[in-house]
Simulated assay, not measured.
Amino acid sequence: MTSSLNDRDDVPAAGGAERHIPVLLAEVLEHLAVKPGGRYIDGTFGAGGYTGAILGQGGEVLAIDRDRTAIDAGQALVQASAGRLRLVEGRFSDLDAHAEAQGFLPPDGIVLDVGVSSMQLDQAERGFSFRFDGPLDMRMDQSGPDAATVVNNAPVNELTRIIGILGEENKAVRIARAIDAARKEAPIVTTRQLAEIIAKAAPQGGQRIHPATRTFQALRIFVNRELEELARALAAAESVLDEGGRIVVVAFHSLEDRIVKRFLQERSREERGSRHAPLVQSAVPSFELLTRRSVEPGEAETAVNPRARSARLRAAIRTSAPAHALDFRAVGVPILAGIPGPEAYA
């Protein structure tokens, strides 16, 4: 699968409308099995596409977003919902705490649309995209160290690993060295500066994507701790869903999708073994898969919304078994051993 920035950042939103198109909407609603009066958590509110559709089918929604801009923009939908929408600023990894605080337990379903939103990419001042020149920021909740802090202060060897592992960039060494040489001359503070440094160090050649795509992805993931947040959000969803509750996750790049896939697979297996190895009894399954393979958008959807082309949907239904312990390594969260969090570079 290609990365989210490959598919979201290189394709401009025609007339601004594309940013409001929820991806795989029909499939999300089908797997959530929305019912009138049912309670649903939208862990990634964004522009409110999924929330609006759930409300339209008679459901009640607790929507969460860590981006204050999305919360402010969603107030009109709150007013129009006749009390059926509660909009909360916060991280989706804390969805269990938010649901408890709002008296929204147990939910009938949870939907997560993972990664950066089209709205964020289209706002130059947020610094997520190299299509526009803006401050090198990339913070989803607009607090804590930004991407410029990491780019200008991380040691070269650590910057190399961040770009190589989180960006899946095979030219990470060359790019990190070029960044180091440039920052010795002057701080790197804008998206255009960084994109030009990368393009010069690692020319595009025959690649379909811009040379800076994977580095921007890596920095965004690192600054926002996106993969750890995703794993914690999945565990939080597991903890609040009762038997029969559903989880639907839409991911946009391979690192995200791998975590979702492994999380659900690990929690839906009863026993393991083969003719070469003894049978091993696993923990009692806490989920039953609704999708054996990921669901992808069809040609009709990608023709209307090109940014949807890398989307992958996975879904499962909760059993009565206790929630499993969360193991980052087991579910595929990359472990950057020896590299501190972004706060260490401030």
Score class of each variant (00 low, 15 high):
Thr69Pro: 12
Ile162Ser: 03
Pro36Cys: 04
Phe328Leu: 15
Phe252Pro: 02
Ala14Leu: 14
Phe287Ile: 06
Thr213Pro: 00
Val280Asn: 12
Arg177Val: 03
Leu219Ala: 10
Arg131Gly: 13
Arg192Pro: 10
Ala148Asn: 07
Gly244Glu: 02
Lys184Leu: 15
Ile259Ala: 06
Pro203Trp: 07
Glu18Cys: 04
Thr319Gly: 05
Val304Lys: 02
Glu301Gly: 10
Val11Cys: 14
Gln217Arg: 02
Leu85Cys: 07
Glu89Asp: 07
Phe104Met: 10
Tyr345Thr: 05
Ala70Leu: 01
Arg292Ser: 14
Pro22Ala: 08
Ile209Phe: 14
Arg214Tyr: 05
Ile259Arg: 00
Gln57Gly: 06
His98Met: 14
Phe92Thr: 05
Thr319His: 12
Val280Leu: 13
Pro155Gly: 12
Val173Cys: 05
Gly52Arg: 03
Ser239Arg: 15
Asp146Trp: 00
Glu299Val: 14
Ser294His: 10
Val333Pro: 00
Val11His: 14
Ala13Asn: 10
Val248Ala: 01
Ala17Ser: 03
Arg131Pro: 07
Ile247Asn: 06
Ile339Cys: 13
Gln217Met: 12
Gln193Trp: 03
Gly127Phe: 01
Ala277Arg: 13
Gln193His: 06
Leu159Phe: 08
Arg318Val: 07
Arg309Gln: 08
Ala325Met: 13
Leu32Glu: 09
Arg126Asp: 04
Gly244Leu: 08
Ala97Phe: 08
Glu226Asp: 13
Leu336Tyr: 02
Leu166Tyr: 00
Gly37Cys: 14
Asn305Glu: 10
Asp113Pro: 09
Gln207Lys: 13
Asp67Val: 14
His276Ser: 06
Glu18Met: 09
Ile221Phe: 04
Val23Tyr: 02
Pro211Lys: 08
Asn153Lys: 10
Gly43Asn: 05
Leu336Lys: 03
Glu89Tyr: 07
Ala195Leu: 08
Gln120Thr: 04
Arg39Met: 15
Ser310Ile: 10
